[in-house]
Design a protein around this nucleic acid. Structure first.
Lengths: 244, 244
DNA sequence: TACATAAAAAATGTAGACAATATGTCGCAT
DNA sequence: ATGCGACATATTGTCTACATTTTTTATGTA
């Protein structure tokens, strides 16, 4: 799981089957790791040249990313890295509270000893990445922790949906990270607390810890300042001559 | 065999912009209304001829439907109408319990008088469709009821996800409808009970009614008998001479 | 007759060409 | 000089042709 530093285009002429998947992974990682900032235009021609494929395959991948809400496709205008609005951000975090409560209740019922060891291992990785100051790696690992819980819960549909929500959460963190970043390591401790509650088998405690954890995540964001574009209509409503 | 019964192709040469949306809607409806049965192959050439467009646009639409889990694309093999397995069916229904509990709690907080009137109107439409024996219409209306609640809850992400889950639920009902269909009208009454609980503003009651409602839906299904294809191996194991 | 192999047909995967649309620039009239 | 309009450029949307893969059919042999 090397996060790929520079869009590393590896040609695989022998096996064309997972070429798509490879390019998709590159672009997905590039967006989540903030190497492509929100709003960046994703030109079909340029991407096609970078990956040495035709626009056809690029278009397919862009459409997939668009369905996952990671990029935004405007008709006849092209694809852009998503710029989630504060409303979208709130929806995503709220949806996570709903989904992850359900996941947690199912985790408590399904959890095995090896599952717990796996979670503990992830926790150590997280702590290590924080110590080393590898921010984007920590973001990825933090997401992996939640996805690991979803997998333990054993519902594939919920897992896929949470994967989308986690991706969007990363984009949101990038765009709305507040100034007071000191308590980032908290998340790691909170993950530890959650594991402890799971160990004890106390469902309500685990659920509450998870919801609180997501609440903290939301409150760390700066969702009140900038609301790009959408507000233009409100801002300038009534200022144009023709309008009532 | 010609599985495509009648796809009502309406040409709109003037506006090419939402041509995609039109074709998508036709195919989506055809699948959910059981005019295309699960497992039917969706040939790009055939669909392209039917809608008078090239394979390019058909492929785009098939990929969208695939992402929504309504069709299944096999590499180099083509697209087929999804045949949800019993496990997938259980996942979908279970995911709905999670999501719709969260939606219901948010509905209770957001509900307005006009919202309630709207829900009551939908209930009447449902009852009418049941009286007239319009089964597929009732299935659609029943789904719309749940989606209306999601909209009232006001979370776009959850609404989109529930839309996917409702679509898949329709496919599941088609494939696993049990013999004892007498208590179909129950669902309509259950929807009425839910509205009543919302009117009263009793959150726990409304949530419990919704979960019970989904539980009834799941129990009406016949998820133990046929497991398409996979079971062939079990069914015929031991009957062939070579096997132990 | 049954099975294995190979050729043929059909469908999907990809690439490039052309058409439609949006953006940017320049010129002209006021 | 400013504002409007037409042309030029660039990008996306769609179609067609070709390459690859799968499926079917035919044929030869045991």
């Amino acid at each position: 799981m090397t996060p790929v530093t520079k869009l590393d285009v590896e040609q695989k002429p022998t096996k064309a089957g997972n070429q798509d998947e490879h390019i998709y992974g590159q672009m997905f990682a590039a967006i989540l790791e903030q190497r492509l900032s929100p709003g960046t235009k994703l030109s079909e021609d340029v991407l096609g040249e970078i990956f040495s494929v035709s626009r056809t395959v690029i278009r397919k991948i862009l459409q997939r990313l668009a369905h996952e809400k990671v990029v935004n496709i405007l008709p006849n205008r092209g694809a852009y890295v998503s710029e989630p609005t504060p409303d979208e951000a709130r929806d995503v975090l709220d949806a996570r509270k709903v989904v992850e409560e359900g996941i947690m209740r199912r985790v408590i019922k399904n959890i095995s000893a090896s599952d717990i060891r796996h979670l503990e291992g992830m926790l150590i990785e997280e702590a290590t990445s924080i110590e080393r100051g590898e921010h984007s790696r920590w973001v990825a690992l933090s997401g992996d922790f939640h996805l690991a819980l979803a997998k333990i819960a054993g519902n594939e549909s919920l897992t896929d949906y949470l994967r989308e929500l986690v991706s969007r959460t990363s984009l949101i963190h990038v765009q709305y990270q507040s100034k007071k970043m000191g308590n980032q390591s908290c998340s790691c401790e909170e993950h530890g607390d959650i594991i402890q509650a799971i160990r004890e088998g106390s469902e309500e405690k685990a659920v509450q810890l998870m919801i609180d954890h997501l609440q903290v995540c939301e409150e760390q964001l700066n969702l009140d300042g900038k609301e790009p574009e959408s507000d233009l209509y409100e801002i300038f409503s009534g200022t144009t001559g023709s309008d009532a």
